[in-house]
Nucleic acid binder design. Structure first.
Lengths: 151, 151
DNA sequence: GATGAACCTTGCCATGGTGGTAAGGTCAAG
DNA sequence: CTTGACCTTACCACCATGGCAAGGTTCATC
């Protein structure tokens, strides 16, 4: 056995089914940047390190990262994802807790959607009344300036 | 004429129809904090100052602040509002420019709405399949974990 | 003419989720 | 031993807003 001071460990880790942060990013669809960020947020446990201080990830870690990515895709906040991860890991969870969180989030989404829709409707209405030619008269600006709607 | 070193100016300003930042905030619905912020962003011109370095606002300034508040209410970004203010102040603008900006913003809103709606639909679907009782089985978590939809 | 309340001033920090950049360390291949 | 790809930490930026702190101004009341 050659007397290498501190074996690189990284290729060794690879042989054992562990991934570098870059590989984990590729496999999970989360950037290395965000993986480190989630670790700092304590959403995921601190990754194991090689002798050279590189983070290493197991297949189970990749699985967790994918879970986070999907939850983000549904619009859950980091705090909510933290809760979801806790429930996911807890074999004795009640599905009722998960459902409650989901229903609440649906309501939050509905609220945001309604807000955006009312903006959209108001603006589309104004734009519909605007000639959109070379003349300066413009109901959009008139409305923003506070003039009566002039229906 | 009494030889007051530097006349307070504030009450004098008030007499002439000028407002303090607090009053301007009250009248426009924008917090003093944000009024200062908009000034720093150069969205609005630098306010005049009294001898005591207090900002003073005219009725026209209040008008501008209200314009900004309404534009924010329609979801325009600060950058877009800067453009809108420029068009508003420009008597020779073409309404076409305003309309183009508005239409673009409607498209942006539509995009966000569609995104939120697809989240909402996916999540509502999952929640609809979740028993929501004391048992741990949960299609929501199963989906986040990446299991097949199990329709 | 002093005191105190209400207001103003600037400046810094925080949010949330993500991106960038810089300065340096590690590793594998040539 | 060098090169280049990757990793490390530690900052700063975004956007719009809120909060707090430490200090100055104004004004009304005693």
């Amino acid at each position: 056995m050659p007397s290498v001071k501190a074996p690189a460990e990284l290729s060794e880790a690879k042989d054992q089914g562990y991934y570098s942060i870059g590989k984990a990013a590729e496999l999970s669809g989360i950037t290395p940047k965000m993986i480190r960020h989630y670790e700092a947020l304590e959403l995921i446990p601190k990754a194991a390190r090689t002798a050279g201080d590189y983070r290493v990830y197991s297949a189970a870690d990749i699985h967790t990262l994918r879970f986070i990515r999907r939850a983000r895709g549904l619009g859950f906040s980091m705090a909510e994802i933290g809760t979801l991860l806790g429930l996911w890991r807890n074999q004795r969870r009640a599905s009722e807790q998960v459902k409650r969180l989901a229903i609440k989030h649906v309501a939050d989404l509905d609220e945001k959607i309604a807000e955006l829709q009312s903006m959209r409707a108001a603006l589309a209405q104004l734009a519909g009344h605007c000639h959109g030619d070379s003349r300066p008269e413009c109901p959009i600006l008139a409305d923003l300036a506070g003039l009566p709607p002039a229906e």
